[in-house]
Structure formats: structure tokens, C-alpha cells
Amino acid sequence: MLPCTGRIDESLLLKAFENGADGVMVIGCLEGDCHYVNGNIRARARVERVYNILEQINIGPERIRMYNLSAGEGAKFAAFTNEFVGRVEELGPSPINLARSNGSKESEQEVQAT
């Protein structure tokens, strides 16, 4: 939880994928309603940059998405979250997690073979 999505930069978002996230959802305040004037607009630009990076390295750009909500929109938050989680589940594990699980299976097999 950050006080403003303006604090988010590309490296934080990429770190989430490095740390095993299959998808990353960024939720900022409604556009035009940022307490820090344009933090959510900056966040959107950074999310778009990460979207492009994920596309270039074949991780899948649809694994990241930004939503804008006010603090009073709990039902909408739940709906957006369910929608995003559903989409990520359809996509399956990220290529990073697939590579990691393949790697651990291989090492298990090596241990069993010895």
C-alpha cells in the first residue's frame, strides 16, 4: 500500500514479477482527483511503459493493468479485482514461474535419479 500511485516506478512493478507475481494490478485515485495533483497520471504512464517492456520480453503485457477508483467504491474494487484475477488465471502462471517450476521439477528428478 502506497500513499499515492505516483510513488510507483517501473522498477517496483518489474520487481513484483521477479518476486513471482503472475499479474500486477495498480489501483490509483480517479483521474483529476489526485491529492498530489498528477500522481495517478504519472503512474499510468509508468504502467504503460512496463506494459511495453512485458510485451517486448514475452512475459505478456496483459499481466499488468491500472484501474482508477475512489476510496468509496468498494463494490467496484471487488468487481475489478475479480475481473483481473480471472483474466490472470486464464493466462496461467507467468513464464518466469513456469521456468521456475520446470527448474525445480528437473532438480527433483536429478535428486531422485541419484
Binding site: 521477479e18 520480453i57 512475459i59 521456468a99 527448474g103
Partner: peptide
């Protein structure tokens, strides 16, 4: 510094995904 972090993460992700 920020670009170092972003590029490094990008390379690590791309390379790990490629095995």
C-alpha cells in the same frame, strides 16, 4: 540509477523466462 534497476529487472525476467 532508476534506469539501471529497470533494465536489470527486464534482463533478469527475459532471461529467466527463456530458461
Amino acid at each position: 540509477d532508476k534506469e539501471v534497476q529497470v533494465l536489470s529487472s527486464t534482463l533478469r525476467l527475459a532471461r529467466e523466462a527463456a530458461g
